[in-house]
């Protein structure tokens, strides 16, 4: 038992799962076991969206210090607005809508990387500036109208099998795919190598530019997917639908044990951290805390978890 624990403790993702279970237990003790399963189902539905963008953010952060995508919330909004407007509540136009939304997201990724590579703007500022432009595009294109999603998308986004959201199953498959890509493919290994030492990666003949480009595009595409499904889930696209996803996307990556210094990614941690964040929110709601207290507790607990998880020891040396 102690042997297993010391082995488990070495896993960077373990803290997010411990935090998640602790928060869930605190909640169901408070409700005396009522709705224990429902709470998990609800957390799983909401966490799905955070996991999708968290995976994209994880890949970007893994490519090395300073790399981060702050345009994710704006991209979610733009993709949702484009998808809803083109689908126009018509099932037959579902595929065109998805293609258009993903096409726009691809352009966002291309634009972001263009700013970073060609203009040599630090990624934080590049993606921040582009997020302003993306958001303005969404506002001007969407004109604030709330269009309902086509029934098929609505059904897909809210469907459940034995209490497990169907979307969550797809995201589980996606996570598995990304984990395999990181471990087994040339692209994934290159992402890790660049994060550890970009100079060494370049000298080893790896295509650093192409890999970084692919990573920013991947992050934008995943934000696009999140925008489409989220519009289906919440009954249409709204201009503020990306709000809150900025903190979430970065927090799940860091709490999940991915190194902020780059070079080490962790897929299971993203799941644990995303579920933790939503269960935390549920817990504070169940406890009946006021808005102010809820905000303070969210902040304090997030800081506490990353403090306990220990930041990045390797960086210290």
């Amino acid at each position: 038992m102690t042997g297993m624990w010391s082995k488990l403790r070495q896993q960077p993702w373990i803290w997010s799962f411990i935090a998640m279970i602790a928060v869930w237990l605190a909640t169901i003790i408070f409700t005396r076991g009522q709705g224990a399963g429902d709470i998990l189902t609800a957390a799983l539905s909401f966490a799905t969206f955070t996991i999708v963008i968290g995976l994209g953010q994880m890949m970007v952060i893994t490519t090395g210090p300073g790399n981060v995508d702050l345009s994710i919330p704006a991209t979610i909004t733009l993709s949702g607005v484009v998808a809803m407007k083109i689908m126009d509540t018509d099932n037959a136009r579902l595929l065109i809508g998805i293609a258009a939304a993903l096409g726009v997201s691809f352009l966002v990724g291309l634009f972001n990387y263009g700013l970073i590579r060609l203009l040599r703007i630090p990624p934080i500022i590049a993606t921040l500036s582009s997020s302003f432009l993306i958001l303005s595009t969404a506002i001007s294109y969407g004109r604030g109208i709330r269009i309902k999603p086509p029934p098929m998308l609505d059904d897909f986004a809210t469907a459940k099998v034995l209490g497990v959201p169907v979307a969550a199953i797809f995201v589980a498959l996606l996570s598995l795919a990304i984990a395999i890509v990181l471990k087994r493919t040339r692209y994934g290994r290159t992402v890790l190598a660049i994060g550890q030492n970009p100079r060494a990666a370049r000298l080893a003949g790896l295509n650093v530019d192409l890999t970084r480009f692919a990573t920013y595009v991947l992050s934008a595409l995943l934000a696009g997917v999140c925008g489409i499904v989220l519009s289906g889930f919440s009954g249409g696209a709204a201009l503020n639908m990306g709000e809150g996803f900025l903190l979430a996307s970065i927090a799940v990556v860091v709490i999940g044990g991915t190194s902020v210094a780059g070079g080490r990614a962790n897929v299971p941690g993203v799941w644990g951290a995303a579920l933790f964040i939503y269960l935390l929110d549920t817990m504070l709601n169940v406890f009946g805390a006021s808005a102010g207290i809820r905000l303070i507790m969210t902040g304090v607990i997030i800081i506490a978890v990353i403090t306990i998880a220990g930041g990045d020891r390797a960086q210290r040396s």
Binding site: I250, A251, I306, G311
Partner: peptide
């Protein structure tokens, strides 16, 4: 604790 400033300040 050698934590990333963006996460701590975001919290």
């Amino acid at each position: 604790r050698n934590l990333p400033s963006i996460v701590v300040t975001l919290g």
